[in-house]
Design a protein around this nucleic acid. Structure first.
Lengths: 178, 178
DNA sequence: CTGCATCCTTAAGGATACTG
DNA sequence: CAGTATCCTTAAGGATGCAG
């Protein structure tokens, strides 16, 4: 998505109409990705509550680099979802709030977020069932089941570390409140 | 937003503590990211229409590698949103459909997608205003012609659209027929 | 056809330093 | 405080090959 500095000089000095690889298309897909983006979701939900200053958002969301927060806010502002009010004072004070458009989006997003919260139990149960089925299926092929382990031996991690079938994935949670 | 943190493919058959993963946040945040993930959104919307075979989904969605489609489907299946029906025939035939849980999620997602479509005009207008304001504001000591920018490339938004001023509007876009 | 595994490229995201 | 610019690490995603 980003140009990044790794752009070949040849490309820069010879712009032209850009051969269009996968140029503009369904624009609304992009907007959807903006509002459902990792930080976009959190920003919208926070701003639905009340306007926030930059640092307030940063603290409220937690674990977000200022770089990403800035990027997210700029994108949402450009899309007309967030209003940015920069007061020319020292030290600088900038307030972010939702526009009418942004409020609509934020409400949809919040609805989705609420849903995941309400249905969390069902999801967790499904995961346990899935993992359990997988585990028993892989480790102990039942007679008559016809699921012989072929050669899929000890599963390994990225670094090649073999790992026996499983236990609790460690969770160094921080329990953020959405 | 990605689907993968839940099931990085290797994770499916090799459940275990991977080096660095952010399964740390509140669990419902993860589910939210699954359903709002790039391919997750498209899969859910397609399946809302009717059950699909693997290759049908692939074609319907378009430009999605089978790797990503597989990963997305596995994640959604594990979360209990998608039902997988693998028929033991040759050649293999696998049908994917929504569970009750998945239908609820898909409807929320579809609502959000519809919203972006309905409000697209407003968003585009906002973008034009934003870019225009930026451009006039940035315009300054310009004596010669468009000399190749030295090193200060345009700041970008999340979607990669560079600031006005210019050239190289490298927009990473998707042409999906949602 | 469906799916798993591996390599490899690119983009996202974090850390840091600097500015107004 | 609120950014901007840069570097650098990690993760996402695509291509390919193989198996059932």
């Amino acid at each position: 998505m980003t140009v990044s500095e790794g752009v070949p000089a040849s490309r820069v000095s010879a712009p032209g109409p850009l051969p269009s690889e996968r140029e503009a298309m369904c624009p609304h897909r992009l907007v959807l990705e903006h509002v459902t983006s990792r930080w976009g979701v959190l920003v919208l939900i926070r701003l639905l509550e009340r306007p926030h200053r930059f640092s307030e958002l940063r603290r409220a969301i937690g674990r977000v680099s200022e770089k990403m927060l800035t990027q997210t806010l700029q994108t949402l502002e450009r899309d007309g979802l967030v209003h940015r009010d920069a007061q020319p004072v020292i030290p600088p004070r900038v307030d972010y709030s939702l526009t009418g458009l942004g409020r609509e989006a934020a409400e949809q997003v919040r609805a989705l977020a609420s849903w995941t919260e309400r249905r969390m139990d069902g999801v967790l149960a499904a995961r346990r069932a899935y993992d359990e089925a997988r585990r028993t299926h892989t480790e102990a092929p039942r007679s008559g089941d016809g699921t012989p382990r072929t050669h899929t031996e000890a599963p390994r991690a990225v670094d090649g570390t073999p790992r026996a079938g499983g236990e609790a994935p460690r969770v160094d949670d921080e329990a953020r409140t959405l």
